[in-house]
Design a protein around this nucleic acid. Structure first.
Length: 127
DNA sequence: ATTCTCACA
DNA sequence: TGTGAGCA
């Protein structure tokens, strides 16, 4: 099938599909016309890519882990050890990001409250 | 009608 | 990633 059909069957824009190819996530054949030729298996590949993308993985990691995935329905399951390892590292990165955001969130909150306290005091002093 | 590449008011 | 241009 050509890119248009794959796009319709996956709900992913042709723009994204070409981008995925650039990132090495899809390797369609090429017709003499230059048109990309995808096969049915690419439909499931695209679905997996979307899931991994939604999980916050970048295309580099997806490229590595993609060949080690199984389509257990709507859920993706790891098959190789290398993959589970890469995923664990990604999960740790997320944990770190979450902690930094929580710290920033708490700090911002304290600054806001400090400002409110000052305003309240100014009010009591008839300012 | 479709896809392709390239570039960005 | 979207979008439009100019081709094939």
């Amino acid at each position: 099938m050509f890119i248009g059909e794959l796009s319709r069957r996956t709900g992913v824009s042709t723009r994204s599909l070409r981008y995925y190819e650039q990132q090495g996530l899809l390797r369609p054949q090429r017709r003499a016309s230059g048109y990309r030729e995808f096969d049915d298996s690419d439909v499931t590949v695209v679905r997996r890519v979307r899931i991994l993308l939604a999980a916050g993985l970048n295309t580099d990691l997806i490229r590595e882990v993609l060949p080690c995935m199984t389509d257990e329905g709507a859920v993706l399951a790891p098959i190789c050890e290398e993959m589970a390892d890469g995923l664990r590292r990604e999960r740790d990165r997320l944990t770190s990001s979450i902690e930094q955001l929580q710290a920033a969130h708490a700090l911002l909150g304290s600054i806001i409250h400090a400002g409110e306290a000052i305003s309240a005091e100014a009010g009591r002093n008839g300012q």
